[in-house]
């Protein structure tokens, strides 16, 4: 069933920053034809460096791009509905309700001057026709569900009175309030220490195993994506350059960029050398035509100056956007 009708299907998504009154009078493509799909009960890890377009993908789906950035093309189908171009009113009904979001820094995502309770209650009231007392009861239950000790007292606390881990639990409790179909998590564990990070990853897994919810997990950390995801999509300069089931992608990377990311992770035996990718990712206005990874790629060929097509990986699992894909299974 999930194979026939994915919960979220993004096709050729193009998000642009319109031309500013300057020398360079062309719109900049923040996202340049991003496609992926995600079924219920699945976790897709969206991996890339900062500036690769991971967060832009999330905000495009949510309709929360900062103007003047806008979705300029492509489609975002969510539960059979087209989100691109949907009026703000309709989007608002989905946000926090059918699609919930968890952000990177729990210190910054909760309003410092409002109590935890006020912020959960307002989220309940935004989507449910219930009274204040009932909303407060639901808020308390939501905190209890994510393992916040003493939920009743926490409702009256302000965010600065909670630890970073508790704050992120509050953010997760808010995301789960209306049992969303899709959770978009934008680096939610980056600011947390390792033990709390592991707990939260476990809880997210448990949630998805219920089979109703899908998670789009955005991270720069390939090892976090590996622990958590069913599938991983690697982004570079506004495009998905490789996508495959997590195991296959990590054991047999096809795109030179994926291989480079893996080589720069401390995964081998102790003392083995880490090899960083030479050079820096291109800036938004300095992306080369054709394959954007070309200047940093050891396998670059003259033909790479043309846009490489998306084609299936040799093992038949997933796809890659590269003319000279690496020897899959070489690791």
């Amino acid at each position: 069933m999930t194979a026939t009708l994915p919960l979220l299907e993004v096709r050729g998504l193009r998000t642009e920053l319109p031309a500013r009154h300057g020398a360079l009078n062309v719109p900049l493509n923040v996202l340049d034809g991003v496609s992926f799909s995600l079924g219920r009960g699945r976790i897709l890890g969206l991996v890339g460096e900062s500036g690769s377009g991971k967060s832009a993908t999330a905000f495009s789906i949510m309709g929360l791009l900062d103007p003047p950035a806008r979705v300029a093309g492509g489609s975002i189908r969510f539960a059979g509905r087209e989100l691109a171009g949907l009026p703000e009113r309709e989007l608002r009904r989905l946000r926090g309700n059918r699609i919930a979001m968890i952000f990177q820094d729990p210190m910054m995502t909760l309003n410092p001057v409002l109590t935890i309770g006020a912020q959960i209650v307002e989220t309940v009231l935004a989507h449910a026709r219930v009274g204040r007392a009932e909303a407060r009861r639901r808020a308390r239950d939501a905190l209890g569900r994510v393992g916040v000790p003493g939920p009743e007292e926490r409702l009256d606390a302000h965010p600065h009175e909670l630890s970073g881990g508790l704050r992120q639990r509050v953010a997760i409790a808010i995301a789960l309030l209306h049992e969303p179909d899709l959770i978009i998590a934008d680096e939610p564990t980056t600011a947390l220490d390792a033990t709390i990070q592991a707990q939260i990853l476990r809880e997210i897994r448990g949630l998805v195993e219920g089979g109703r919810t899908a998670v789009l997990w955005i991270t720069h950390d390939l090892s976090v994506a590996e622990q958590l995801s069913d599938e991983i999509a690697v982004m570079y300069a506004g495009r998905i350059v490789e996508q495959a089931p997590a195991g296959e992608l990590l054991s047999r990377p096809a795109h030179p960029y994926t291989a480079g990311l893996l080589a720069s992770l401390p995964r081998g035996p102790r003392g083995s050398r880490l090899t960083p990718i030479p050079g820096l990712p291109p800036t938004l206005s300095g992306r080369p035509a054709g394959c954007a990874f070309r200047p940093r790629c050891a396998a670059a060929a003259p033909a790479c100056a043309a846009d490489p097509p998306w084609r299936g990986r040799m093992d038949g699992r997933g796809g890659v956007r590269c003319l000279t894909p690496g020897p899959e299974g070489s690791r």
């Binding site: 926090g96 919930a100 409002l114 989220t123």
Partner: peptide, 27 residues
Amino acid sequence: VHLDYVRFARARGLAPSRVVGVHILRA
């Protein structure tokens, strides 16, 4: 308006009146 908690308030589906009248104005 660009702070994370304002964006988060919008991501929770709050009405614009509440985002502006409570979250932005209080700040």
